[in-house]
Write a protein that binds this DNA or RNA. Structure first.
Length: 643
DNA sequence: ACAAAGTGTTTTTTT
DNA sequence: AACACTTTGT
């Protein structure tokens, strides 16, 4: 994360860091690694690391990076490239490596798959083969299922008689990821008529969105395909990438799509040591195009050695035992993990609670959480409410019943204006504006907020390498804070509108400069969208707030019980997990894909570190859902009637 | 105007 | 499977 241009990075000056002999190297920041992790770490070839829930995948990768950099096995000026799917995961791994080996952090590039492929296209589009030359630039444009359906109908009509039936049978929701994404672009587009339906449809797709006149319309699958074509067609680029990145990490490998797999093979199939980390028991993205057996395919195609991590640093021994019952259904050869988590006494590790109404469920759980917090040092953020789908159906009842106890609920996927809450809370603009309000409300005691806000302001006003300008920004911030403070004191939240507050803020920071800054640094973010969402969130936060501190807490919702889907919960952990809605209405899809449904169940319940409570109702337990109850019974999970 | 029949959605990320 | 929403038929 610390390399400004990670594609062809400027190697940091070779510092006088002493190399550590391979046999003397010890992990930093943690006590020790398990034996299998040591073996995998020392294997400098292609490696597949199978790591179940709580195995410390990210930590393993951070330690492997430290090992390769500190021992000189990845010598200056070469880099390690770590590829993740989500920005959060990429940032998290980057931060961990920086913390472990700050002196080598400049040679560790952690980014998302899409950032890497888009970066290649953006820099080397001119090197694309003549048939694929991009003439008028492109814009990112994702298509809806309905639009893909219209496109397929259109081309099926115009298709040669022999292909018409087959083209019409492509499923709109699988076409881009499964068909376009699976198709390697030919360097030279053949002039003669295509013979099969796939080639015909894919060619029409590229024709309609890319090869026609005007600005190309690309989504991330198409960017991936262009990047793959680039490295395949331009051997010098391929060599440069392999030399720069002799070591590549890929996280969550079980979620790799066919497009991503083909890209990895083309770029890093040779002369590179690839480490793939994943857990096929947590493959829950099949419906979105993840390969059914990505890890196996990797082992085969990259001739990789497999290592299985068996320690679980997250969950108590009893919960590890429960997880193993489900793991065995997903993979009969699964090895039971060893819990390395601290044991907590005094509560049942897992139970199944039955309720007759949603109302009773929300009330009972809200009261229970409030009592548990009152009797312990836990905070609302230690609790998660997880469900299979339709999270917003749960939101109003739990919000109301937890509010009685002064506990907040956060649904990161909730719509705020035209954004999701998580996008709003992650954006730099929000950090700046909320930071200013925090500083004005609480001027002394928030040194990190002050630091963040002034750094952002320096960037917004272009003062980053200019000490005089930095000094001006610093003085400016002091004055801004004082003026905003006076304004806040004379305008309590209950008397003011969000529109006025945002106007006040934008007048202080120079809204025009901020707009230019957002456009220049994050082309994917729209300033008006963020400003609108910010205003909407602020409006609802100030409504019943007692004071500005309260309103800001409500806006950020940092200390809250989180409500999320099992899919979103992947990679996260909580002291206590409520897995809501173990019944047919939530799990209707179980019958059509039992393995993926079971994996979703596995992912959700393995988020719990110390306590797991599953909830259900009194509806029929026959049919596919019976499989889940059978596993719970086998694990000895007691059922409790809660009214 | 209203009911019946049909369609789409559910689980998501990426600049 | 179940719900929300749209189109078609009387």
């Amino acid at each position: 994360m610390s390399t400004p241009d990670p594609l062809i990075p400027m190697p940091p000056a070779p510092r006088r860091t002493t190399l550590i002999p391979v046999d003397d190297w010890r992990p930093a920041g943690i006590e020790d690694l398990e034996p299998a992790a040591w073996e995998a770490l020392r294997d400098v070839g292609n490696v597949a690391v199978v790591a179940g829930p709580g195995a410390g995948k990210t930590e393993f990768l951070a330690q492997r990076a430290a090992y390769l950099l500190q021992t000189g096995l990845c010598p200056w000026p070469q880099h390690i490239l770590a590829i993740s799917f989500k920005r959060d995961a990429a940032a998290n791994l980057g931060r961990r490596v920086t913390a472990r080996v700050p002196e080598h952090a400049g040679r560790f590039a952690s980014m998302t798959f899409d950032a890497f492929t888009k970066g290649l296209v953006d820099r080397f589009a001119l090197a694309l083969p003549p048939d694929w030359r991009m003439t008028d630039g492109y814009e990112i444009s994702t298509v809806t299922n309905a639009e893909v359906g219209d496109f397929l109908n259109g081309i099926a009509h115009a298709a040669p008689e022999a292909l018409r039936w087959e083209v019409a049978r492509f499923q709109p929701n699988r076409f881009v990821s499964g068909v376009v994404g699976n198709y390697d672009l030919p360097e030279v587009v053949p002039a003669d008529a295509e013979v099969d339906a796939i080639s015909y449809a894919v060619r029409e797709w590229w024709q309609a969105r890319y090869l026609r006149r005007g600005k190309a319309q690309l989504d991330f699958v198409m960017l991936n395909r262009l990047a793959e074509l680039l490295v395949r067609a331009v051997p010098r680029l391929r060599r440069a990438l392999r030399m720069t990145y002799p070591v590549v990490f890929v996280d969550e490998f079980q979620d790799t799509t066919s497009a991503q797999f083909s890209f990895l093979t083309s770029v890093f199939g040779e002369e590179t040591a690839v480490t793939a980390v994943g857990d096929s028991k947590q493959r829950i993205m099949g419906w979105a195009g993840a390969l059914p057996n990505a890890v196996q395919r990797f082992t085969h195609a990259f001739d990789a050695t497999t290592y299985s991590l068996a320690w679980n640093f997250r969950s108590s021994d009893a919960l590890v035992a429960l997880q193993h019952v489900i793991a065995r259904q997903l993979d009969p050869a699964a090895v039971r993990a060893t819990s390395k988590a601290t044991t907590e006494d005094g509560h049942d590790p897992a139970s199944l609670w039955t309720f007759s109404t949603d109302e009773a469920e929300a009330q009972f759980i809200a009261d229970w959480i409030a009592r548990d917090i009152a009797g312990s040092n836990r905070t609302p953020a230690d609790f998660a409410l997880i469900a299979r789908q339709k999270i917003k159906d749960f939101e109003p009842l739990f919000r109301a019943h937890l509010a009685v106890h002064g506990i907040r609920v956060r649904n990161d996927d909730a719509r705020v204006g035209k954004m999701t809450l998580q996008d709003l809370l992650k954006s730099e603009t929000t950090h700046l504006l909320i930071g200013l309000l925090r500083l004005a409300h609480e001027p002394h005691g928030l040194p990190t907020v002050w630091q963040d806000v002034s750094t952002t302001l320096e960037r917004v006003h272009g003062a980053i390498d200019d000490e005089v300008a930095q000094h001006r920004v610093g003085e400016n911030l002091t004055e801004m804070t004082l003026r905003l403070r006076a304004w806040l004191e004379s305008h309590p939240p209950s008397t003011v509108s969000a529109v006025d507050t945002v106007q006040q803020l934008l007048a202080l920071v120079d809204g025009a400069a901020l707009r230019r800054y957002v456009r220049a640094t994050t082309p994917g973010e729209d300033f008006d969208l963020i400003a609108g969402a910010f205003e909407a969130r602020l409006e609802s936060s100030i409504k019943q707030a007692a004071g500005w501190g309260d309103a800001l807490d409500e806006f950020e919702c940092a200390e809250a019980v989180v409500l999320l889907t099992a899919h979103r919960s992947k990679g996260l952990e909580y002291h206590t997990v409520f897995f809501l809605g173990i019944h047919d209405r939530q799990w209707w899809a179980l019958g059509s894909d039992l393995p993926e449904g079971t994996a979703t169940f596995f992912v959700g319940l393995s988020r719990a570190a110390h306590r797991l409570i599953l909830t259900t109702d009194r509806t029929n337990r026959a049919g596919p859902i019976a499989a889940l109850f059978t596993m719970l019974a086998e694990a000895g999970v007691p059922e409790i009637d809660c009214g």
